[in-house]
Nucleic acid binder design. Structure first.
Lengths: 117, 117
DNA sequence: ACATAAAGTCTGTAAAACAGATGTTATGTG
DNA sequence: CACATAACATCTGTTTTACAGACTTTATGT
């Protein structure tokens, strides 16, 4: 299982890269921004392996981007923290850049996310 | 060796994630923004494995973010394309977010990048 | 021509990804 | 309450990928 140890680099980009330089982390956060909250919901939307999702949710918790509620007992809901919400401008930039540089002429970017990568 | 096939996802974030969801890609681009151009320069600054650097440089070329000059003969210089330069606002956001959310109180973000992750 | 540096490639080993089966608590229904 | 089902994982075996470090090849400077 993939684990996480926060970067101690002095450069903020170096630290961010340790966390955000992972395809599943980026996609899980995207789905969370679009409303996903439950384990099975992420599975269904992303077609991600269960073990991979488990490890990424643990990483996101450890990094303080999501909380697992309730902590004990009942079924979990994964909720975005303020820290994660602060990533929205970055995602906006990513969407803008992707739309402008990752589509061929005549190929239109769609806004819907639940599709194979 | 890690290879790359551009994403065909309709979502621009999905496509961007395929490319940018990799720690080395993010760090190599950072160093390129800071002036690195040659293979050994990236090696020295990032402490990255040679094979890993080779594969990431190939991916960046295929995605159109860098060019390898000159193509034949002499030693190579890797130069950023316009497409890569358009990522600067995203990096600015990343640096801002990292500085605000990835440092403990009393721990100051430095601006220098050449340090262990 | 020679020494050295740059730009890779190769090899063996360790880590991570994945599909798919299995286990374990919740929650809804009769 | 008993039972079925859904949610939330974990485990197993196999395939991919990552990595350190040695080696090779092609420039460049003297």
């Amino acid at each position: 299982m993939k684990t996480y140890r926060a970067s101690r680099a002095p450069c903020p980009i170096g630290r961010a890269a340790r966390l955000l330089g992972d395809r599943w982390i980026l996609l899980i956060l995207r789905e969370a921004f679009l409303g996903a909250e439950r384990f099975e919901e992420f599975i269904a939307r992303l077609d991600v392996n269960r073990a991979a999702l488990t490890s990424r949710l643990a990483i996101l918790q450890e990094a303080g981007l999501i909380t697992r509620e309730p902590t004990t007992g009942k079924r979990a809901r994964y909720l975005l923290t303020e820290s994660a919400c602060a990533l929205v401008p970055l995602y906006a930039e990513m969407a803008k850049w992707g739309a402008e540089h990752l589509f061929d002429d005549g190929e239109a970017p769609g806004q819907w996310s639940a599709a194979p990568a």
